[in-house]
C-alpha cells in the first residue's frame, strides 16, 4: 500500500508535464457543465432535459442488492449481468446475494472481488440472461462542478416508489473519493452516480455528519483494480470489508486413520457444523473438496487454508455406502 502511494508520488512529477493532454473537450459534454452556475430558464431546462433523457437507461440498470442483514444498491454494467457496487455492501468475496431489478424480478448472484480500502466491489448475476446495463466512464472525464445524478434504493426496495433520483454537483475530488451534493441515505450504498450523458462515474459509499457530505467511489478506482475484482480477489486491508481470517474455520469432529484408508470419525461435536450436516460417529471421510484425505495432519492443513463461512464438501462412506455432505465452516 505504502509502496503504491510512493509510486504515485513519483509519477505525479512525471505526469504534470502531460496535463494539457488530459484536458481535451468531450463532444457530448453538455454545455451547462461549463457554466459556473445555470443562469436562466434555458440553462435549467437543458439540465432537466439531459437528466430525463439519460434516466430510463440508468434506472433500468440500477438494482437493489439483498445481503444477510439488509440491503444496498448496485448497477449493471454488462449485458451478462456484471454489477458494480460498494465493498461494504458485498461484505466479502464469493458470497451469495439476491439482486432485485427495478420491476421486482429477483435474481441469484455472487459477489466477486472487492477493494477494502476504497469501498469498490463487483457482483455477478449467476442466472443466464440479457440484462439492461449502462456504460461506465473509463476516461475519468468528470470535472469538479459537473452536474451529476444519483439513483439508489434508499432504505430498501420499494416497488411503488422505484429507485430514488437526486440531482447535484461534483463538489470535491480527493484521492479515491468523489463528493457530491446528491443526498444519500442507508440503502443507497453501492448505487450509481451518473454524469448528464448517463455514463456511470461513481458508486455511492458513505455520508458525512454534515447533511451536504455525500461520498462516492470514482470509476478510476474500479478501472485500476478491474482484473483483481473480476478474479474475486480480496484487495486491500479495510476498513470497508473485513478480510476473512485463514484457519478460523471449524468443522467440529475428531478422526482417526480408517482401517481401509480415509479418516474415521470418532466424535462429532455438539451443535457443530458437522453435526448439523448429519455426519455421524463411524462415518469414514475419503475426500474434502475433491482432495483425497490421507491423514489427520493433512486434513488440518487443508482446513487452515480456509475460513469461517467457506463451503466444504465431504465425500464419505457409512456402512460401506457412499454419502456426500455439504456444509459451511463455523467460526472457531
Amino acid at each position: 500500500m505504502s509502496l503504491n502511494f510512493m509510486m504515485n508520488l513519483v509519477w505525479i512529477s512525471a505526469m504534470i508535464v502531460f496535463l494539457p493532454w488530459c484536458a481535451f473537450a468531450l463532444e457530448d459534454r453538455p454545455y451547462v457543465n461549463d457554466l459556473k452556475a445555470p443562469e436562466n430558464r434555458k440553462d435549467l431546462e437543458a439540465l432537466q432535459n439531459a437528466v430525463s433523457s439519460a434516466l430510463p437507461k440508468a434506472r433500468a440498470a440500477t438494482v437493489c442488492i439483498e445481503i444477510k442483514d439488509g440491503s444496498g444498491s448496485g448497477v449493471i454494467i454488462s449485458a451478462d449481468g456484471l454489477i458494480l457496487t460498494a465493498a461494504h455492501v458485498a461484505t466479502g468475496v464469493k458470497q451469495k446475494v439476491t439482486v432485485i431489478l427495478e420491476d421486482g424480478t429477483r435474481l441469484k448472484a455472487e459477489t466477486l472481488g472487492l477493494v477494502a480500502d476504497s469501498d469498490a466491489a463487483m457482483i455477478q448475476i449467476t442466472e443466464k440472461g440479457t440484462y439492461p446495463f449502462v456504460e461506465i466512464d473509463r476516461t475519468d472525464s468528470t470535472r469538479l462542478g459537473d452536474w451529476v445524478f444519483a439513483l439508489g434504493h434508499s432504505g430498501g426496495y420499494d416497488k411503488d416508489r422505484g429507485a430514488v433520483l437526486r440531482l447535484g454537483r461534483l463538489v470535491r475530488i480527493a484521492g479515491t473519493t468523489f463528493q457530491s451534493d446528491c443526498m444519500l441515505i442507508g440503502g443507497d450504498s453501492g448505487g450509481p452516480l451518473f454524469d448528464l450523458t448517463g455514463k456511470l462515474v461513481g458508486i455511492h459509499s458513505r455520508v458525512g455528519q454534515q447533511m451536504q457530505v455525500n461520498m462516492h467511489v470514482p470509476m478510476a478506482e474500479f478501472v485500476s483494480h478491474w482484473d483483481g475484482m473480476r478474479n474475486a480477489e480480496f484487495i486491500g486491508e479495510g476498513p470497508y470489508a473485513e478480510k476473512p481470517k485463514k484457519g478460523n474455520g471449524f468443522l467440529g469432529l475428531a478422526t482417526e486413520p480408517g482401517a481401509a484408508g480415509g479418516l474415521k470419525v470418532t466424535k462429532v461435536g455438539r451443535k457443530s457444523p458437522a453435526e448439523a450436516a448429519g455426519i455421524k460417529e463411524g462415518d469414514v471421510l475419503f475426500k474434502m473438496n475433491g482432495v483425497a484425505l490421507k491423514d489427520r495432519g493433512q486434513m488440518q492443513d487443508l482446513l487452515e487454508e480456509m475460513s469461517a463461512g467457506n463451503e466444504v464438501t465431504l465425500e464419505t462412506e457409512r456402512g460401506g455406502k457412499p454419502k456426500t455432505f455439504s456444509l459451511a465452516l463455523g467460526e472457531r
Binding site: 509510486m7 504515485n8 509519477w11 505525479i12 505526469m15 488530459c22 484521492g175 478510476a220 478506482e221 478501472v223
Partner: peptide, 8 residues
Amino acid sequence: ASLISLVS
C-alpha cells in the same frame, strides 16, 4: 494501476 489512479 498507479497511473490510472493518478489521473484521478
